[in-house]
């Protein structure tokens, strides 16, 4: 299970830090670059290939961050439209996937800031299921609701690390922070999640 990427408001810098020299490109990344080249040359339909390839991953990330399927749909759409408009600014220092995740990440965080009050209201009325149910669906529902209670930056780290299986370096690029910050956030996210689990799911 592998996948993709993230980022933010118009006028913001989508370039990847030059320290990204660690990145080894896969066949998928090379194929993406070919498609990006076609889009840059005016092949609009080629962008649809990238949308099909990454829409589920962007949707998963944004759904995790916004805690709402409706919001995630809007943010996913906004992410790809921003990526399309900024595709000429995509540099091949890192993968298209990471670049796209960065757009999605920042777009979702902006969305959360705009909707902060509504989200807080919704969370206050949510009920977390008890740990009595042992089947997988119940566990999955419990995990989802526990993760939804984490801070956005912790939520994002867990999703990128577990759902998308990104390396620390890739997560650092997506969230625009040092690798050390990624590690400490991941530890803090797991610690927070464990505490929530002990409080609500046992």
């Amino acid at each position: 299970m592998r996948s993709m990427g993230l980022a933010l408001t118009f006028g913001q810098d989508y370039s990847i830090p030059t320290s990204a020299g660690w990145f080894l490109k896969s066949e998928s990344d090379t194929a993406d670059e070919g498609i990006v080249g076609r889009v840059r040359n005016g092949d609009t339909e080629a962008f649809g290939i990238l949308v099909r390839k990454y829409e589920d991953f962007v949707f998963t990330l944004t759904k995790g961050l916004t805690s709402s399927a409706d919001s995630a749909g809007d943010v996913t759409q906004e992410t790809f439209l921003r990526a399309y408009k900024a595709i000429r600014r995509f540099e091949k220092k890192a993968s298209f996937k990471t670049w796209l995740y960065r757009i999605a990440y920042n777009t979702a965080l902006n969305h959360i800031k705009r909707r902060k009050h509504e989200i807080e209201f919704e969370e206050a009325h949510e009920k977390i299921p008890t740990g009595a149910d042992s089947d997988e669906i119940a566990i999955r529902a419990t995990m989802k609701q526990l993760i939804d209670r984490l801070k956005p930056e912790h939520k994002a780290i867990l999703i990128l690390h577990y759902y998308d299986d990104l390396k620390y370096e890739e997560i650092a690029e997506v969230s625009n922070c040092p690798v050390g910050t990624v590690k400490i956030r991941l530890f803090r996210a797991k610690y927070e999640l464990k505490k929530l689990w002990e409080k609500y799911a046992i």
């Binding site: 649809g48 577990y162 759902y163």
Partner: peptide, 28 residues
């Protein structure tokens, strides 16, 4: 820091959610 095994497995084994079909259609 790890959750009990069954929770940890669920966390690691969760694949991406499927985006609604309207997302692709709207974007294009």
């Amino acid at each position: 820091l790890n959750l009990p095994e069954k929770y940890e497995i669920t966390l690691q084994g969760t694949g991406p959610s499927r985006a609604p079909d309207t997302v692709f259609e709207n974007i294009m």
